[in-house]
Design a protein around this nucleic acid. Structure first.
Lengths: 230, 230
DNA sequence: AGTTGTCTTTGCGCTAGCGCAAATAAGCAG
DNA sequence: CTGCTTATTTGCGCTAGCGCAAAGACAACT
């Protein structure tokens, strides 16, 4: 897969970059492809690269010392990942990056990134803005986890996913998602079983329609009602 | 309370600022004092200022639609707060800032901050670094909340607090903390009752010694053991 | 069409931790 | 010293949600 300057303009953090800068970035990067289920990096690895996803899907997960893990977020094309480790000198990745399907990403050397940051003020600024948005999301999810019941958290997760990864089907107003029960459980700090039971219940109520690794949201407003705590 | 340029050098984000810049910052700021229990700002307020705490203690809290709240973090002198709202144009604060004791802070106008950011690359860069550190902490706490039991989370919170706010007593190696059971509960996504029960148990085991709004850690290593999941 | 591996469902039992209520203790003001 | 306020403790009951196990459903491959 060939990545062009034009492609890079879709990256939020590069929106203010000049063509020359983008060219420089391309010259100092390599393209890496990882097949479904593989890893771009593991939690704890020394952070040599910052990645920009070109195609596919990548999920960022963090494991605790016992190996139990949570899903921090899913990355879609032209989003960055690995930035946390890469912007700090000598840092390691705080999470692992596993592909959900065959994926290709541009890998930018951390050292090169650092040199860019020194001379390109807009880059720090845009990165900072990205980080603030991310902090807000994490704070909101943290609060959710601390104060809301599983039911509400799962409903919220579906709503959030519908916005990020949902495919709106043509005929009806339904929204299609491709996630396993396990995925949703890891996103909400719950378990595969509980999520399955919730889905069964919601399906009985006609709010969603499920299949293997598929969720089709029929009545989004009902989910919002559940998320708000009935 | 008079805040000087020398004081501002203790602020991590200003570590690379010139004296001239710091002087400019002081000129474009006001000093605000808030008595114990009062608020510097409320969640949802339009973010007019970024604050630098000069004295006292401030806790940042986020409430869900039902009013239930979580403690995001406690701010100590020469740390910034309100940055999340202030760096984004037209934003509002995602959390409330309540003082735990009489406090004074330097309030920097958001608009002035924006103009500084445009012409002072080091500022964006240092802010970005602050944000990345904060994201990592939030991710770790999120994972903790999702995968660890209350007992472990509370032990972890005490350890974290010991590092940030602990006062090491002279005679013995004990560490003093001033937080109520309610505070600890809000920090760990638990309840006042559960925390009280845990403290009672730990006190029986001689790990801590408690009083009204006081916790004295006698055996930190025991807490670490509990945090690691026995 | 059969085989295999993975995902999902559901019953069942269990417990961590919530939440109320009532008693107690500690600090503060007059 | 006394009363008032606020923090804390503890008993008690309860339930949301975990976790195991066994069975069923899908999808892909041969």
């Amino acid at each position: 897969m060939e990545i062009s300057i034009k492609d890079l303009k879709q990256v939020v953090v590069f929106q203010n970059a000049t063509d020359d800068d983008l060219r420089l970035i391309l010259q100092n990067s390599i393209t890496r492809s990882v097949e479904e289920g593989g890893f771009f990096f593991f939690q704890g690895d020394s952070a040599e690269y910052l990645y920009v996803l070109a195609s596919g899907q990548v999920k960022l997960m963090q494991a605790n010392p016992n190996g139990q893990q949570v899903n921090l977020r899913t990355i879609y094309p032209w989003q960055m990942f690995g930035a946390l480790g890469a912007v700090r000198a000598e840092a390691s990745y705080p999470a692992s990056a596993q592909t959900l399907e065959d994926s290709t990403a541009l890998a930018i050397h951390s050292k090169f990134l650092h040199s860019m940051l020194e001379t390109r003020p807009y880059l720090s600024f845009d990165l900072m803005n990205l980080m603030t948005a991310y902090i807000q999301e994490m704070q909101a999810r943290y609060r959710e986890l601390a104060t809301e019941r599983v039911e509400q958290r799962v409903a919220n997760a579906l709503i959030r996913l519908a916005g990020q990864a949902g495919i709106r089907s043509e005929k009806d107003a339904a929204i299609e998602l491709s996630f396993s029960r396990q995925d949703v459980a890891e996103m909400t700090g719950s378990t595969l079983f509980t999520v399955s039971r919730l889905f069964s219940e919601w399906e009985r109520q006609g709010i969603i329609k499920t299949g293997r690794e598929r969720i089709r949201i029929l009545k989004p407003h009902e989910l919002v009602r559940i998320a708000d705590g009935v």
